[in-house]
Nucleic acid binder design. Structure first.
Length: 155
DNA sequence: GCCAACGTTGGC
DNA sequence: GCCAACGTTGGC
């Protein structure tokens, strides 16, 4: 079982959107490294920390779960989509994604500021210089530390 | 809105 | 295959 951190902009598709939809295909990723994590490493049942970026208080706002095998990201074939990729064909896929299911919203955001202050999280990928990947693996220890800290913060 | 860091593109 | 130019990300 693996643990992940998925970034999303709350104005584009925040955790409230996921809560409302229940399940969503994590389409629109157009970075090969991030895609490879979904295509090659994500497994059904993996837990996902849901991170809001590009917002007033960036941080982890909740939890989601991987509930599908990798599958074609359909937006690559849709000429009306922002994520349309003219180079992609059904026979020669460029982009794959997985389905995410909503699990929970934290009572209180676990902010980037707090993440930085947590000594157990100093190796977290998103804290490393210049890391802009929208999907990054998280170790079990880091995952547990974040869950624990977010529980304490909200009690 | 600024800007550092990174990824991608395309000419050569 | 190099690398300059450009676009994007995302914290501040």
């Amino acid at each position: 079982m693996n643990y992940w951190l998925f970034k999303s902009e709350p104005t584009t598709y925040g955790i409230d959107h996921l809560k409302k939809d229940g399940v969503t295909a994590w389409s629109g990723v157009r970075n090969y490294q991030a895609r490879n994590f979904m295509r090659d490493d994500a497994k059904i049942g993996d837990l996902v920390l849901y991170y809001h970026s590009n917002t007033k208080i960036p941080g982890i706002v909740g939890l989601a779960k991987v509930i599908s095998e990798p599958k074609p990201d359909l937006t690559q074939f849709d000429p009306t989509s922002d994520y349309f990729d003219p180079m992609a064909t059904k026979a020669n896929l460029r982009w794959q994604c997985v389905d995410l299911e909503y699990v929970e919203t934290f009572k209180k955001i676990y902010s980037l500021e707090e993440i930085k202050e947590n000594n157990k999280l100093k190796n977290l990928r998103i804290l490393q210089k210049g890391n802009r990947l929208s999907i990054t693996p998280v170790s079990k220890d880091e995952f547990c530390a974040i869950i624990k800290a977010s529980r304490e913060a909200s009690s």
